[in-house]
């Protein structure tokens, strides 16, 4: 994990994204405990309030849950939920960006589709 105070993305969002990536990749498996606020704050020299704010985004999204006296755990179904969300995001953002950029470079729809097929052929 790496956190960049200079990024346009707020630090707490970066923390949420990093944990979401960990859940998506399976590094933080469902029903297992994720590192505590203290551990993350200490390891990455981040203000614990910032770390907590990031984790709360995941709590609000239902990806992690607090178990009293035990810590934060990845919820069952969190990975599948993230895959769904990432797919939606891929269509709504990356594909749109790709098309916009292709238009700016005067790449036609047919050319773009050919390029995507070539990409799959590799």
């Amino acid at each position: 994990m790496h956190f960049d105070a200079e990024s346009l993305t707020p630090l707490y969002q970066q923390i949420a994204d990093a944990f979401a990536d960990g859940i998506l990749s399976g590094a933080f498996a469902e029903e297992t405990q994720i590192p505590s606020t203290t551990q993350v704050a200490r390891e990455y020299q981040l203000n614990p309030a910032t770390v907590l704010k990031g984790m709360n985004i995941l709590v609000d999204n239902g990806l992690i849950e607090k178990r009293r006296g035990l810590g934060m755990f990845v919820t069952p179904g969190a990975q599948a939920q993230l895959v769904r969300q990432s797919k939606d995001l891929f269509y709504s953002e990356q594909v749109t960006a790709l098309v916009t950029q292709a238009r700016a470079l005067h790449i036609s729809k047919t050319e773009l589709l050919t390029a995507i097929e070539k990409g799959y052929a590799k």
Binding site: A41, Q45, P48
Partner: peptide, 14 residues
């Protein structure tokens, strides 16, 4: 310095 910042965050959380 790095160690100090880590220890500062640890004691601040505790």
């Amino acid at each position: 310095r790095h160690l100090f910042y880590q220890e500062l965050m640890a004691t601040f959380t505790d």
